[in-house]
Design a protein around this nucleic acid. Sequence first.
DNA 1: CAGCCTCGAGTTCT
DNA 2: CTCGAGGCTG
Length: 691
Amino acid sequence: MQTNSFGSESLEKNSETSPKILAEQYRQTLNKYNYEYYVLDAPSVPDAEYDRIFKLLQELEVQFPDLVTPDSPTLRVGGAPLAVFSQVRHTVPMLSLNNAFDDADVHAFVRRLEEGLPGQLPKIDYAVDLKFDGLAISLIYKFGLLVQAATRGDGNVGEDVTENIRTIRTIPLRLRGENPPELLEVRGEVVMFKEDFNKLNARQREAGLKEFANPRNAAAGSLRQLDAKITSRRNLRFFAYGLGELKIDDKYQRPATLTDLFHWYSQLGISVCKERALVSSIDELLAFYRQTEQTRDQLAYEIDGVVYKVNSFALQQQLGFVSRAPRFALAHKFPAQEQLTTVLNIEVNVGRTGAITPIARLAPVKVGGVIVTNATLHNEDEIRRKDIWIGDAVIVRRAGDVIPEVVATIPDQRPVTARRFVMPTRCPDCGSEIVKSGDEAIARCSASWIKCSAQRKGGLWHFASRKAMFIDGLGEQLLDRLIDQNIITTAADLYKLGFTSLATLDRMADKSAKNVIAAIEASKKTTLARFIYALGIRHVGETTAKDLARYFGDIYPMMEATEEQLLEVNEVGPVVAKSIITFFSDPLNREVVKQLIAAGVHWPKSEMMASKQIFSGKTFVLTGTLPTLSRETATALIEAAGGKVQSSVSKKTSMVLAGEEAGSKLVKAQELGVRIISEAELMQMLDHFTN
DNA sequence: CAGCCTCGAGTTCT
DNA sequence: CTCGAGGCTG
């Protein structure tokens, strides 16, 4: 369970296993070490051990060249880190903790405690707190003065980072209180708050410098700055969680428990983590874990689990250590949200607008409990900015816990076989030229959807999607086949589909064919806004489609609209207006619209009438002097459209109508994020529905 | 005219 | 969710 037991010894004993399996085991072990080294910044084995396994794998691959996989660590070339800080030997070693990944591990931990502490049960108090995702640091205070700060290093020898640590404002340079101990070694974690991390990366980006992969790397990088002035700008923080050496006059009492220690730290002016608890059962330990997992996103900093420790120092001592980790403590980790993996290839996807999006094909890894194999790279600039090569070792994260993202590459682990991604010049679907207009980030297939079946598929998928026509059961698979076999080309063709043409498709059961036909039939009854959205006009999304529907009331006036007229519509500027005009100037698009309506696609004609009460349910507040209207007239106009006028601004206010010399109500509206409109805008809104 | 805000488009996996 | 881009506000 703990990292060390997953060792090399077991690997070598398996001499009877096939070379293939052995090679795989070596690779996995090396990847794990890499992960610990680069992602966790907490290697579980010395470098020499890594080198030894590396050599074993290399020899095996020389013997059996077929066994070389594209993600083999032997294809990487490594670089040795430079020693620039002076070294510090820890008097009391800074050990790592045993890890638990599931409830069973926690039960085993408690069972080991029972065996180690006969007679103590049933009551052992546990001090539980968070496992910060930062850097472990040791601070030494002599007679209350900070004299030395050091990183953990390998646990025995770390680096002297005193100058940089001094710049951290949450670390006292002199302890508070009258009688400081002769020697106090505070153990804790340096972290960077998520907010500061984001700001830092924004600055790095602006300055054209490399961004940091995560707050922990940023904290580590900041602490390793040779120039302490840079460190001071990085806004690092410190939380104490433990005790190293302590020499204290006999007349003072030594803290007997962690609870005492933290209390004492607070008095000395040393910050400790507030998310703590004192519990005494497995159920409470697990409850703390689950509750923390729920709320971790709300914390200002990142954590990768929680820590359980026996509260009493006396009992801790009695329990002692197993190999290199204390028996009295356990780190219960959350499922990893970041992993190290390999970019096997970078391919491109063609979207419905012809947008060419590069996608990284990854060696499968489990991230946050899910196997990830793909991650979007957005566009060429992004690849260049992050300097991602095919073959690179990369850190992958699930952004917002959902969508996989390549956070960063590890250039000094770049294999010799790695190569840069080159944007193709031809569309992988239709072979047309790929173009990129100067200032745009996205490259596009130059062909229209008539020629490019990828765009056609995307367009039809959009047409049938939930927010558009909502044709349930018309999935991607089915659409692909219908288009590939030239059964349909345009959206209008969908409504000409017969049961027989569907049922003749392979693997298409009669029943599902019937369902699809029924769903298509049902989709005929829709709304104008959905219909406009379904057309897939560039720059016309859900919201703009609604605005257009409200303004025009029907599709025909919109098809004939001039640019001037379109600009009247909310959310429509020159770019959107031109896009709409271009769309309807294509005879084929007009034909499709005509056919769709002929096929029976319809929407309530009363939609416009219903929207006559455009302000029903909305509340307004007037403030300041309006240019032309009196307050009475404005109120009357709003009420005629179904709205209500109130005297004071609240969160529930829909809009604030502001004129000259608007006062506190305007300020309040801004604070609450309530929409503020001018008289002209109000008139515009009212015009739209009377037209 | 610049910065802010909102919208659009593409995307992952179960 | 994230990024880019268009529109709107100050």
